[in-house]
Design a protein around this nucleic acid. Structure first.
Length: 639
DNA sequence: CTTCTCACG
DNA sequence: ACGTACGTGAGAAGT
């Protein structure tokens, strides 16, 4: 046995690292005592990295700890150790881990303890922290990293184990990227810190939980988040199938496209299209007048500016209002192709498991508003105006893709929260809300421009924007916008009343918005206007999460691939996909404070891209689908 | 590490 | 007194 003493908050702690069978027996006796006492035990793993599903990935150690003592089980050393860790995970009744989905998925895949077995016994301390204060440290919150939480609540001098280990990696000639894989399993600092994390997480949890109770957050919300986390972990474990042949071709084509336009840009002296200063200087040199500036005062040459210079609208359609600037055009196209290649194409090509599946990290409770995020493949941010990137993700063999989204969920949630009678009536009657609004304000002879304005004002309400921003966004004169906002407030008085009220309550609560689910959303003092948006965005997120749990209860999780804010993407066998999509749509649909939240199921072909192959009018392009999607191509052959 | 840019809902 | 567009993840360049 190796021993590593360490003082935390003035108390001696001990990390033990078993080396022999007899040492492991001692560990098992400790586990049995914890099991009998029903005590919460801290849990953590050390692995070769973050790419849990890659072929060369390994679980190195599994750590267990209480406030005084930790055990580091070096799983890597052989089956005797792995079996001890496995047994402990099956035996301990209550565990706490920080960012539990990571460890749960590692254990599921590399130690053979299934998610379904372990997840119900695990508390995620990150969920506890987020439910009290969702802000990262740099936004004025407590922070959500274990180190930050412990520095505040346990021991300010507790080591930053991740950061300190990075220094150790450098000292042995490795980097942050390679160190976790290469460091010797017997390295004393590695073992010491592995144990400390288990001790720290078990020390922090009761403090975090006490604070949460004191703030009045219900246990039901804590349980809700843990179930959501579990369902998302199931989706992450399943992953999405990538069409590897297609993606390889896509990456090559995007590279050629990026290079072609980069070489055009070079003719105007721009050697790097991603260097804004070069682009700005060259454009000025060509006689263009650049007026917009960035926050730091530099000339702005973003997409919007360049599209103007290239004589295109925001949808890249020719406008015919000026002579297109060829450099602006080349920079736009090169940057877009380059970004799509690196951010999406290369990940789909290179980050798949042996079965060709991509497992994006689903962070079920992430944003300040509790919205989810998806990382290490930003699956929520793939281009939607062009099908080519999404075409890379395909349904399983013998499956078709489906997607179900909520119709105008944020406006409906706002109508419900605000109890806006007129708006609720329009929604209940199934009216197109923006038509209805335009008619209310401008009468039955309203124009398309009126509808657009009404829709814009609605967005302004959801986002907390004002007349100036809306005028800038829509291009409408500010006086017209002001008139429209005043009219909107007149016909929907409930919205303005609710906005004032939610801001007043937030101030009274110490700049915290409390949502109907009892969630606390910290508000910046100088941005109180964001309160309405926070309440709406967060409540809409909770609606989707409740739907996920309802779907799980109905056995639909096996068909789900991704949650995307107001939408669920899935894959189901061709013979039942229509039925599954309908069932998902029915399950997601719900009544929210008297407002129907309707859903719109859509079934595509083999690829996600098939749901985006539309013509200029927004109708599905059958010829394109038959050319580019395997399922529609086969349907065409059959016909 | 910060800034700028750009993809989404 | 006034008005404030919301929330993410990611890459490249520059410091």
């Amino acid at each position: 046995m190796k021993y590593f003493p360490y003082t935390i908050a003035g108390e001696e702690t001990m990390t033990r690292v078993p080396e022999t069978a007899a040492d492991l027996d001692e560990f098992r006796r400790w586990v049995e005592r914890k099991a009998i006492a029903g005590e919460m035990v801290g849990f953590d793993t050390e692995t070769t990295g973050l790419d849990t599903f890659s072929p060369t990935y390994r679980l190195r150690t599994a750590q267990f700890g209480d406030a005084r003592e930790a055990w580091v089980i070096c799983v890597e050393l052989g089956s005797l150790f792995a079996e001890a860790a496995r047994w402990a995970l099956l035996t301990l009744p209550r565990l706490v881990a920080h960012n539990a989905p990571f460890d749960l998925l590692v254990i599921d895949r590399h130690l053979g303890v299934p998610l379904a077995t372990l997840a119900p016994r695990v508390t995620d301390s990150k969920i506890i922290a987020h439910l009290f204060d969702s802000r990262p440290r740099h936004e004025g919150g407590y922070g959500l990293r274990l180190k930050e939480l412990c520095a505040k609540d346990v021991d300010p001098s507790a080591p930053d184990t991740q950061e300190d280990l990075t220094a150790v990696f450098r000292s042995i000639g490795e980097t942050k990227a390679t160190g976790w894989r290469k460091i010797d399993i017997h390295h004393p600092i590695y073992l010491q810190y592995a144990g400390l994390d288990a001790i720290l997480v078990s020390r922090w949890l009761p403090i975090g939980e006490a604070r949460l109770r004191k703030a009045g957050v219900r246990q039901a919300l804590v349980d809700f988040e843990h179930r959501v986390m579990y369902v998302c972990a199931l989706m992450e474990r399943r992953g999405m199938l990538v069409d590897q042949e297609y993606v390889r071709g896509l990456v090559d084509r995007l590279w050629e496209e990026a290079e072609l336009h980069a070489s055009k840009a070079k003719q105007y002296g721009v050697t790097s299209v991603n260097a804004p200063k070069q682009v700005a200087d060259a454009l000025v040199g060509m006689g263009e007048k650049l007026t917009e500036r960035t926050d730091s005062g530099a000339l702005k040459v973003d997409k919007s500016v360049l599209l103007d210079l290239a004589d295109m609208d925001q949808q890249w359609q020719p406008r015919g209002t000026r002579t297109p600037n060829p450099l602006a055009d080349a920079v736009l196209r090169s940057k877009r192709a380059g970004k799509w290649r690196t951010s999406y194409g290369l990940v789909m090509r290179d980050d798949v498991d042996v079965d060709g599946r991509l497992h994006a990290n689903i962070n079920s409770l992430q944003a300040r508003t509790a919205r989810m995020s998806i990382s290490r493949f930003p699956a929520q941010q793939l281009p939607s105006s062009d099908w080519r990137v999404r075409r890379g993700i395909i349904a399983d063999v013998g499956h078709r893709i489906f997607s179900v989204d909520y119709s105008a969920v944020e406006m409906r949630v706002l109508a419900a929260l605000a109890d806006e009678r007129t708006m609720k009536r329009a929604i209940a009657e199934g009216r197109d809300l923006h038509d209805f609004t335009a008619e209310l304000i401008w009468g039955p002879d309203f124009t398309k421009a009126h509808r657009k304005m009404g829709k814009g004002v609605g967005f302004g309400k959801v986002y907390g924007g004002g007349a100036a921003t809306l005028s800038r966004q829509t291009g409408a004169p500010i006086d017209e916008v002001k008139v429209a906002i005043a009219a909107y407030d007149r016909v929907y008085p409930g919205i303005k009343r609710y906005s004032r009220e939610v801001q007043r309550k937030a101030r009274a609560n110490g700049y915290v918005v409390i949502t109907p689910t009892g969630r606390r959303l910290p508000l910046d003092r100088d941005r109180v206007y964001a309160a309405t948006n926070y309440a709406v965005q967060s409540t809409a997120r909770d609606v989707l999460c409740q739907a996920l749990l309802n779907m799980h209860d109905k056995g639909l999780t096996e068909y789900l691939l991704l949650p995307i804010h107001d939408e669920c993407l899935g894959s189901a066998p061709v013979d039942i996909v229509e039925e599954v999509a309908r069932e998902v749509g029915e399950t997601m649909r719900m009544d929210f404070f008297g407002v129907p939240l309707d859903t719109d199921p859509e079934v595509g072909g083999r690829s996600w891209g098939s749901l985006y192959m539309k013509d200029a009018k927004g109708k599905y392009d059958d010829a394109l689908r038959a050319r580019e999607d395997e399922w529609y191509a086969n349907v065409g052959l059959a016909a």
